[in-house]
Design a protein around this nucleic acid. Structure first.
Lengths: 204, 204
DNA sequence: ATTCCTTTTGACCTTTTGGTCAAAGCGGAG
DNA sequence: CTCCGCTTTGACCAAAAGGTCAAAAGGAAT
């Protein structure tokens, strides 16, 4: 009934090719603004050939999103109860910022989906993501209650890490336009600024 | 040669109707993901009737964007050299947060445009916006040099105000999914959190 | 009531889009 | 070398998309 688990060399290559191309296209134009032809062209495949590997445009998009979610949640999952609180949070922030630098298309794919109402992942947000954030918010609150971090709202603290770090991927063109051409890589300054920000906010 | 400046009552009504509808549609699906039919339906007009007021889909979108930019830059323009520094910045932050609450569609229209590479406003970002930010960054830097604000990067400070406040409009569904249905209005807590954040970051 | 300008619409056109299908090409196990 | 299943493609289709146009309908000043 289900498809064979073992993929041929060609299948692996083409699925990877399509995923790459689809990531570029979907992250730039959103789901409805992207076309199958465009993805096929970007992948150097004919449209029917692409549709031989994925049954529909929806399927490609869904494949990307579910692959992405794991990568996306990993840094927060790795924030552990038993470290030095401020260091744990700064490390989380830095890993998220790293992802904005190294995987801006993934960040924009996600941003497009959320901005447009998250029709395809709203359920995941309300279950997996909410559960994870609830858990980590408790950890953070524990640190604050123990006086190891200055008090503030743990949920909005997490939101602020998301928004500040993802901004450098999602709004990249704006950041670069404002900083001007002489300042070619905004990330080092961003990391210094965000380190200062969270240190002053959270140092007990 | 140019169109008459005086608009009839009907023109004013229909242009307003179309702008409203187009704002809803474009902010949800982005430029390429939106259709003229959809906007016409939302505005309760026939498609040819809509195209009687705007020559093309591009024209509607352009009209919205240029109207929006003025509203969008106003709060930063209003940040004045002669106030109490921390208060000026907190007021700016609060006005931006207010805009996320009261005009989320405008924020998402803007976000869609930027995330998708800002093809239609990149020039404005590199001139008007950059000039304005350069000017205000100088003001902020002056405050820091005078010891009236703690030092940090003024450009990234402005970016952080943008990202933190717009997050509550652009990523609204995610914020609500994570906070759960019992917490229906995230804005009061957001304002308290952001006030604390910027106070701790900037208080001299 | 007539006129003239504004507004509205049904029918239509072309291009683009997501998707199908039968047939041709290919590659490696026997 | 010869199958046989995997891969690729040209041709095609129906629906949706942006946009046009001529003609009908409205409305207000005379």
């Amino acid at each position: 009934m289900t498809k064979p688990v073992t993929r041929t060399r060609i299948q692996r290559k083409n699925i990877a090719l399509i995923s790459e191309a689809a990531l570029s296209v979907f992250s730039t134009y959103g789901f409805r603004g992207s076309t199958v032809d465009q993805i096929a062209r970007e992948a150097n495949l004919s449209k029917p050939n692409l549709l031989y590997y994925f049954p529909s445009k929806e399927a490609i998009h869904g494949h990307l999103l579910s692959t992405l979610m794991e990568t996306w949640l990993a840094p927060l999952q790795d924030m552990k109860d038993d470290g030095e609180p401020l260091e744990e949070i700064l490390t989380y922030m830095r890993r998220k910022l790293q992802m904005s630098r190294d995987h801006p298309r993934e960040s924009r794919l996600f941003a497009n989906e959320i901005v447009q109402g998250a029709p395809r992942i709203i359920e995941m947000l309300e279950t997996e993501l909410k559960d994870l954030v609830d858990e980590k918010a408790k950890v953070i609150e524990g640190w604050m209650d123990d006086g190891r971090l200055a008090k503030s709202d743990p949920y909005h603290l997490i939101f602020s890490i998301w928004s500040l770090t993802q901004h450098y991927a999602d709004f990249d063109v704006q950041v670069r336009a404002v900083l001007g051409p002489e300042n070619d890589d905004p990330f080092p300054a961003a990391e210094r600024y965000l380190t200062t920000l969270f240190t002053r906010l959270l140092a007990p």
